[in-house]
Computed example of a mutant assay.
Amino acid sequence: MWPWGHAAVGYLLCALWVRARYGRAPTAGAVLPLAVGTQFPDLLDKPLAWTFGVLPSGRAGAHSLLVAVPLLALLWWRVDSAAARRAWAGFALGYLAHLATDGLYPLLDGDFSGLAYLFWPILSLPPYDESAGILAHFAAAELTAALLAEVGLFAVATVVWAADGAPGLRTVGRWCKRRAAVATAALSGR
Rank of each mutant, 00 (worst) to 15 (best):
A35I: 05
V36F: 04
G37L: 07
G37A: 02
G37T: 07
G37R: 12
G37I: 00
Q39N: 03
F40E: 09
P41D: 13
L43F: 15
L43C: 09
L43R: 09
L44G: 10
D45N: 14
A49F: 09
A49Q: 03
T51I: 09
G53Q: 05
G53N: 07
L55S: 01
L55R: 04
G58D: 01
R59Y: 11
A60V: 10
G61K: 06
G61C: 05
H63S: 03
S64Q: 08
L65A: 08
L66Q: 10
L66S: 07
L66P: 12
P70M: 04
P70T: 02
L71N: 09
L72Y: 02
L72I: 06
L72K: 08
A73E: 11
W77Q: 10
R78Q: 10
V79R: 00
V79N: 13
D80V: 13
S81P: 02
A83F: 11
A83P: 15
A84W: 00
A84Q: 14
R85I: 07
R86K: 08
A87S: 15
L93M: 06
H98Y: 01
L99S: 04
A100L: 09
D102L: 05
D102Q: 03
D102A: 09
G103K: 00
L104K: 03
P106C: 00
P106F: 10
L108A: 10
D111Q: 08
G114T: 05
A116K: 00
Y117V: 08
F119P: 06
F119K: 05
W120K: 08
W120D: 08
W120L: 00
I122L: 15
S124A: 13
D129E: 15
S131M: 08
G133I: 05
I134G: 04
L135V: 15
A136S: 14
A136N: 15
H137G: 12
F138S: 13
A140T: 09
